[in-house]
Design a protein around this nucleic acid. Structure first.
Length: 423
RNA sequence: GGAGAGAUGGGUGAGUGGCUGAAACCACCGGUUUGCUAAACCGGCAUACCUUUCAACGGGUAUCGGGGGUUCGAAUCCCCCUCUCUCCGCCA
């Protein structure tokens, strides 16, 4: 969530910038400022009452010790009435704080000044592209037909055993998955990231910390008996490692990477978007996360972008980078770049990575801070990016590299797969 | 799943109703001393909110796993929850 101080001191700017996200924050911001004022007034009253109570309690102690029972009794009476007062203040303060927090959570992150206005993904701004679009024969097959032809992915079997969106990978298909995971992890480790194997289920506090809860509750699978959520991305456990942590400035940046399966309910998706590997309920992804000094986070965002670009280059996939417009930007993000690869037979761009700077928005929710060299404690900035999500990479690899002899594996991957063609 | 023990500041650990936001030691930071290093000595060392003619030095409140209760007063007593450890059961 946004920092209260920022809302208080830059009210107009916050409202104006949030309008880029097509979010009308004017009324909400006023409410928050008003609640904050109430909170402070109330707190002052409570604190004063408690301070007096403490004083009296000490007096009573002294009287009892010196055996002055009568004085003690008198003071005790006063203290008793103070107790009622402070109870009332405390109940009211609690109510105000709860309302204030609920309102604060409704406020999305403020977009970076470079974020263009726009309604939907059609308004995203292409900032870079690389590689030539593949020229495939007219009868080129989409990946789901290739998957079937070479018996490397079985969607029907997944439907039988689990449900739609939970495919089986088999033979060279399974090995290709394993190869990609190892390739991505090795690249991240070489770039200085520390590898984690995180839990695939998280508790409610973690879901709140990275911003999945409360608003995106319906997107996560929930194990109700134990109140645990299946992670939609490794970002959740990987970032929540630092929930309620105060790092030292010299520990920054923290660079973590994790491979994990990801689970998404994807309620409301349909049509060509969910065909084959285009959108799954369970998929594999390697995720990179950085925790960085506020003054360096945008530099870092560029570095992370380049990391993803290198991966796609090594996989010889044509890709483009989009700067998400306000309308397409997620609730918690200040600036996001999407990477899309061109999938030759479907003739469409598929999103394979999303690299974001959340500034202090997640950090404020989870109280992730660092102590500066000046001794002051400040919120850190969090960033993350997919590097990369597997299914659509596989879709593009299959489609773009199909030949009459089989599907060619890019050079960089061959030492990982142990084969250079799927036939 | 059953039985028991426990959770205190960065770490170890004292503290069973008032003088404890919390001893001591270690770690860390600053200083003195010192050929250098080390040692010794002195000082500092949590977080949040409030207070904004407090520039600075401050003042107030809360926090001893989390929540609730008893009491004029709770780290200390009571209840609930979470987690950790030990033993038993089960098991990849």
């Amino acid at each position: 969530m946004l920092e209260l101080q920022r809302i208080r001191e830059n009210k107009e700017e916050v409202v104006e910038r949030l309008s880029v996200k097509n979010f009308d924050a004017a009324a909400l911001v006023e409410e928050i400022i008003d609640l904050d004022l109430q909170r402070r007034t109330n707190q002052k009253q409570l604190d004063d009452t408690l301070a007096r109570s403490k004083q009296l309690a000490k007096e009573i102690g002294r009287y009892f010790k010196s055996g002055e029972k009568e004085q003690a009794e008198a003071v005790r009476k006063e203290s008793l009435s103070l107790k009622e007062q402070s109870k009332a203040f405390s109940v009211q303060l609690d109510k105000i704080v709860k309302t204030l927090n609920a309102k604060l959570v409704e406020l999305p992150n403020v977009p970076h000044p470079s974020v263009p206005r726009g309604k939907s993904d059609e308004d995203n701004e292409q900032v870079y592209s690389e590689g030539n679009l593949p020229e495939l024969a007219e009868n080129a097959l989409p990946h789901w037909e290739l998957a079937d032809k070479y018996k490397i992915i079985d969607f029907d079997l997944g439907s039988k055993v689990t449900g739609a969106g939970f495919p089986f990978y088999r033979g060279k298909g399974a090995r290709l998955q394993r190869a990609l995971i190892n390739f991505f992890l090795d690249e991240a480790i070489a770039a200085g990231y520390l590898e984690y194997q995180p839990p695939l289920m998280v508790n409610e506090a973690s879901g709140f910390g990275t911003g999945q809860l409360p608003d995106k509750e319906g997107q996560m699978y929930f194990a109700g008996l134990d109140k645990l959520y299946l992670i939609p991305t490794a970002e959740v456990p990987l970032t929540n490692i630092y929930r309620n942590v105060i790092l030292k400035e010299e520990d920054l940046p923290v660079k973590n990477v994790a491979y994990s399966s990801c689970f998404r309910r994807e309620a409301g998706s349909y049509g060509k978007d969910v065909r084959g590997l285009n959108r799954l309920h369970q998929f594999d992804k390697v995720e990179i996360v950085q925790i960085q000094h506020p003054e360096k986070s945008y530099e870092t965002l560029e570095v992370m972008k380049e990391h993803v670009a290198v991966l796609l280059r090594k996989l010889e996939l044509p890709f483009r980078i989009l700067r998400l417009c306000g309308g397409d930007l997620s609730f918690t993000s200040a600036l996001t770049f999407d990477f899309e690869v061109f999938s030759g037979a479907q003739k469409r761009w598929l999103e394979v990575s999303s690299v974001s700077n959340f500034e202090s928005y997640q950090a404020n929710r989870m109280k992730l801070r660092f102590k500066g060299k000046d001794g002051k404690t400040r919120l850190a900035h969090t960033l993350n990016g997919s590097a990369l999500a597997l299914p659509r990479i596989v879709a593009a690899l299959l489609e773009n590299n199909q030949t009459p002899d089989g599907i060619k594996i890019p050079k960089a991957l061959q030492s990982y797969t142990g084969f250079d063609i799927i036939d």
